[in-house]
């Protein structure tokens, strides 16, 4: 049986007294790829933001390996968790290479030489070789997103959270980012991806979670999700996709 990487038990979260997540329980196995879909404002992004401590939880527990996150004990170490944001969030005053090396350098994990070597090999992996000395402002959206993916891989995470990585991009750029992401899917990472790109979810994930109004409405294997929906809300959502 596969080892559980993340175990969420009855997790709730709220922002300014408004409930964002409502009693969500979820298990993510080692090397499993999970897609989260649902309408806007359904709590998809909030769910993955609770995992790396960006959104504090109000009740329940999240276990990540041996670490437990509760309402009173927020995340202490998120070095095993990498996150890619919708709007890239690169640091505009640093070059591409500095964006990649900043976090490992500040943590003194390896020698500067090793960190740079790793940065260059990751730039190669996201097909951005030769862009090391450019600034984010001089890159296209797709290129910035690929750099952001390389940056979160610098810390050698075991879990990757992708928060709508292609939403802000035009179709051509979506294609270049997707090809990089598809390459990542071959690696040993546990990946949770929030996306409105249903074809991408269909091709890359093992399991799909459907959310609405802060609740988890269904949790099925990807092929079953689209062919054998579990509830009315899911059926109407899938019908909308076909139009």
């Amino acid at each position: 049986m596969a080892k559980h990487k993340i175990i969420m038990n009855n997790v709730s979260a709220q922002i300014a007294d408004k409930a964002i997540l409502n009693n969500i329980s979820l298990r993510v196995d080692d090397q499993e790829h999970i897609g989260i879909i649902g309408p806007s404002g359904s709590g998809k992004s909030s769910l993955i933001r609770t995992i790396n401590g960006l959104l504090p939880i109000s009740s329940g527990t999240i276990e990540i390996d041996s670490q437990t996150i509760t309402a009173s004990q927020p995340s202490a170490d998120c070095s095993k968790i990498g996150m890619v944001f919708q709007d890239y969030a690169l640091f505009p005053h640093l070059t591409v290479l500095e964006n990649l090396t900043l976090s490992p350098t500040l943590r003194n994990e390896n020698s500067t030489r090793d960190i740079k070597d790793r940065a260059f090999s990751l730039l190669d992996k996201v097909k951005m070789n030769g862009f090391g000395n450019r600034f984010p402002a001089s890159l296209s959206g797709g290129q910035q997103q690929r750099i952001a993916i390389a940056r979160c891989l610098m810390t050698e995470p075991e879990i990757l959270l992708l928060d709508e990585p292609t939403s802000a991009l035009d179709p051509e750029m979506i294609h270049e980012v997707k090809s990089v992401l598809e390459g990542l899917m071959q690696s040993q990472l546990s990946i949770i991806i929030v996306s409105h790109d249903i074809s991408f979810i269909k091709t890359t994930t093992n399991r799909v979670i459907f959310m609405d109004e802060g609740k988890k409405l269904s949790d099925q294997a990807t092929d079953l999700f689209f062919t054998q929906p579990e509830n009315e809300r899911q059926i109407s959502f899938i019908q909308q996709l076909d139009h």
Binding site: N52, C78, M83, F85, A89, L90, S103, T155
Partner: peptide, 12 residues
């Protein structure tokens, strides 16, 4: 605000 979040996600 995303810069702060990404710094936090990177452990800085």
């Amino acid at each position: 605000y995303h810069q702060h979040e990404s710094a936090k996600a990177l452990g800085i």
